[in-house]
Write a protein that binds this DNA or RNA. Structure first.
Lengths: 259, 259
DNA sequence: TAAGTGTTGTTATAAAAAAAACAACAGGGA
DNA sequence: TCCCTGTTGTTTTTTTTATAACAACACTTA
């Protein structure tokens, strides 16, 4: 067995997300490593979990359908295969997700019609995943047009994919990663300035997305730090980035234009 | 607001499955209840979470994409709509589930071919969900035939649905819930004894499933207790329930036969 | 057959970690 | 000056981990 402790730590983190304690994860991993069913003492030896603690841990794993028990003397324990076990765990979690969604929507929907509120605020979003989720939400609600300034590498293919079906008019100012061909659709225009503004030119995870001329998402990040984004419908904010975008379009010289 | 503390406790349990602490759940629920964005002090008042604790909680919720922050003075906080927020949470969990499945399968697969092991052991399965999962696994792996003795109400439609496509020969001894028509398929035979054995006759959650004449699942439960099942490939176990089943078939008199 | 030893399963207790709860301080704005 | 906001530190509570102890059972040996 070439299993090392780094791998086991990583697996433990994944299983922690699925609701397993450290001991539960260690015991389940140990059972998956052995050939056939095992007794508690053997599990203790392989997993490093104290022998007396192994018993309640195995009971909890059985409740979670990750272990089967044969009531022999000594008891024998067998791991549920990962595909079956993890699927079983996920079923329970998905059910709770569904129930919480319903219950929370009941609370939230009472407010939806009344609170249009606060176009004036600027919202921070942090973490690449959260940012991409927001971009996804915005593009799914898009009505008429998109103007963007961004790295093609990080955002280009996604935008082309997403907006092609809707026939949304899009103008993208972007860098040229190399002389490769851009995937576009009719109605999508690509502008490549001779001297792209610095974050774009440097290949950072940056972008300005102006949706329907009234909503703006600005992504500010570098390839080595956690990116942050700002989102707002505030007219001042929109105006600022509108003019920023227009400035880039008109003053930095367009080196290449592709439709 | 007619929200009571029972509802909030239930929602908290669901959200706990999704990895939220008590305070995180309370704050998110509070934010969903208010009209538009709120300041930290207002959240404290509505949620009952101590004011000083609200800040780190809100930071963590923002990391989880459940809250957006506007860095005004005082800061304003807004809840992500439940659909979007829960979906976002689930994405992370599903990713961890997938990663753990892959990593665990790597460990487990090294053992699959070598360990045929322990047809002799009898495995206990407890909880209706876990039992149904096992039945599902067994029926998806079925090769030639099924004999069963069970309540039609609990198991009949499932079996008919599942095995119809495979054209598996099945013989089911069951009770007659009333004079309703059984859903069957060609190759599935229904036997209804005049005096069904007691658990079956009483309508308990009981059943004997003999799969391919070499694997047996026995479900023992009543409608008011948590059911337990036994599963084994042990020849002795299989022989016992084979003969039990044959005895029922030949001695209790068949009152009705339907193909 | 009885005694001794080792194993198994269970429960209780102690220690550590995480979450909840509370206290206090500094800075900013009215 | 007072109040609010944001932050940090400390204490308490809860949960998990780690350890200790006991009873019962099984096996071996004299």
């Amino acid at each position: 067995m070439s299993q090392n402790s780094e791998d086991i730590s990583a697996i433990r983190e994944y299983l922690k997300s699925l609701g397993l304690t450290k001991y539960e994860a260690l015991v389940y991993i140990a059972l998956l490593r052995v050939d056939g069913p095992s007794a508690a003492t053997e599990i203790h030896e392989i997993s490093g979990v104290p022998r007396a603690s192994v018993y309640p841990v195995l009971d909890r794993l059985a409740q979670k359908n990750l272990v089967n028990i044969s009531n022999t003397t000594p008891k024998q324990f067998r791991a549920t295969p990962p595909d079956e076990g993890i699927t079983s765990l996920m079923k329970g979690i998905e059910k709770d997700a569904e129930l919480s969604k319903e219950a929370l929507n009941k609370i939230y929907q009472k407010k939806t019609e009344t609170g249009r509120g606060n176009q004036e605020l600027i919202w921070s979003i942090s973490g690449m995943e959260n940012i991409l989720n927001k971009l996804s939400d915005l593009t799914s609600d898009i009505e008429s047009d998109l103007r963007a300034l961004c790295n093609w590498q990080f955002f280009g293919p996604y935008i082309a994919d997403t907006l092609e079906e809707k026939k949304i008019k899009a103008v993208i100012i972007t860098n040229s990663p190399d002389n490769s061909v851009f995937q576009t659709y009719e109605g999508m225009e690509i502008l490549i300035p001779e001297h792209p503004p610095e974050p774009i030119g440097k290949g950072d995870i940056s972008g300005v997305f102006i949706i329907d001329s009234k909503r703006v998402l600005v992504i500010m990040g570098t390839t080595d730090l956690t990116p942050t984004a700002l989102y707002s419908e505030s007219p001042g904010f929109v105006r600022f980035f509108n003019s920023y975008w227009e400035f880039i379009q008109t003053h930095l010289g367009v080196h290449h234009r592709q439709e």
